[in-house]
Amino acid sequence: MASSKSSVSDKDKGALIAAACRDRDVPALVRLATSTAGLLSDGLRRTAWPLLLGCPEHDAPPPPWTERPPHKDEHQVGLDVARAFVYYPANDSHRQLDRRRSDLSSVILHVLRRHPALCYFQGYHDIVQVFLLVLGAHDAAAAVARLSLLRIRDFMLSTLDPAISQLHLLRPILRAADPELMAHLPTSQPSFALAHTITMFAHNIHDYADITRLFDFFLAHGAVMPIYLFAAVVLSRRDDLLDIEHEDEDVLYVTLGKLPQPFDVEFHIARTLELYERLPPQSLGSWEWWKISSSSVLRTAATVADVRRLTLQDGERFLMQQEKNIRRQQALCKASQNALYIKRHICIYRRYGYVGLAFIVGAYALWLGRRGPNARYFLYGSLGDLLNKFIGRSAS
């Protein structure tokens, strides 16, 4: 998909990338993928991306995914795949697009059926279609499986809570980088960044050369880089954002959710690196970073070396631990809500209990009065017990 035109420097760099892939020199490949223009072409990426993800060279072919039970999210996969390949590749015929969508569906279902604990999210197909175009249908599934379990696992859990926890890191990053700008931004949950970060920006960048270049950068660094890129984009728009009235939260919110156009990929990658090196997450000293799960990709996939060291089984183990943490948090949240509910009703009871008692006793007396003198005698015998119960409960 890359242009056939190459400068002399591009040819020299291409030779260096090819040599790094051949020698499996990952540190050199990281430097080359980070530098201007990244990995240059899809031909080089076909070797480099699986290497950066730690894909085994000679893995035994797994049993066909079609023999496995359907995944629970396959209906949504079908809906999203039908909307794929809108912006690229250009000039494909309807028949070619149908074939690409069929291949895309196969890659996604291959991953989901082989790893059924993963939950599909809308926008996942935006990521996978880039891998399909670069690696081809045959090699994309193995790379996407490792990406899913080891780098974007936080987005493929039963809730989006871990994804939202990642977004909350924007606050301490922006606060440390530019306190004035941070104070001007909306205080609501930063979900304006979700579509960008959860899809590695593939949902919002419509130029194929730009998104493959950005993927070079992301795959050469830790899983937190999409968060830092978004923060860098916000900082680059400082003047525009400060020109919007602080009270116009809706306008600020909408503006934050859009990328600047045209989007200068190289400029924003350079700003992201600068920001990350100056303010790495562990230096923030923030509650937002402290509360990130030890099983989150932000901690288990902090570097390319971490990703390459891990196996798919490690990814599934971390996923199960994260799901366990999610269930624990949900139980704690439910218990807290129940405690608040009980406390509120105790307060209501203490405030209105005696009024309610008077009403009940009055109605009871009226009913007994109609039942005759024997019933009145019963009233006097039981009223003491009723009062004792109410007074005892109120005291407690």
Score class of each variant (00 low, 15 high):
residue 55 C to V: 15
residue 216 D to Q: 10
residue 132 L to D: 10
residue 222 G to I: 01
residue 23 D to W: 04
residue 238 R to A: 10
residue 322 Q to E: 14
residue 197 T to V: 15
residue 251 V to K: 10
residue 221 H to L: 07
residue 105 S to N: 12
residue 376 R to M: 13
residue 53 L to H: 05
residue 309 R to I: 00
residue 96 Q to H: 07
residue 285 G to T: 06
residue 128 V to K: 08
residue 327 R to Q: 15
residue 355 V to F: 01
residue 37 A to T: 12
residue 142 A to L: 13
residue 309 R to W: 04
residue 118 L to S: 13
residue 383 L to N: 01
residue 277 E to H: 15
residue 387 L to D: 10
residue 363 A to G: 04
residue 7 S to E: 09
residue 325 N to V: 13
residue 383 L to C: 03
residue 278 R to F: 00
residue 354 Y to H: 01
residue 45 R to N: 14
residue 166 Q to C: 14
residue 186 P to F: 12
residue 56 P to T: 03
residue 258 K to M: 12
residue 52 L to G: 05
residue 70 P to C: 06
residue 181 L to P: 05
residue 18 A to F: 01
residue 57 E to H: 08
residue 28 A to K: 13
residue 299 R to W: 02
residue 157 L to G: 11
residue 90 A to S: 02
residue 349 Y to M: 14
residue 52 L to N: 08
residue 344 R to F: 10
residue 254 V to I: 08
residue 28 A to D: 04
residue 302 A to R: 09
residue 54 G to A: 02
residue 119 C to E: 13
residue 206 H to Y: 00
residue 27 P to T: 06
residue 137 A to G: 11
residue 259 L to C: 09
residue 214 L to Y: 02
residue 287 W to D: 14
residue 293 S to E: 00
residue 196 H to R: 11
residue 358 A to K: 04
residue 25 D to T: 05
residue 17 I to K: 09
residue 206 H to W: 06
residue 226 P to E: 04
residue 44 L to R: 08
residue 55 C to S: 00
residue 135 L to Y: 03
residue 396 S to I: 06
residue 159 T to H: 09
residue 335 A to W: 14
residue 364 Y to S: 12
residue 224 V to L: 12
residue 20 A to W: 12
residue 339 A to W: 06
residue 175 R to M: 12
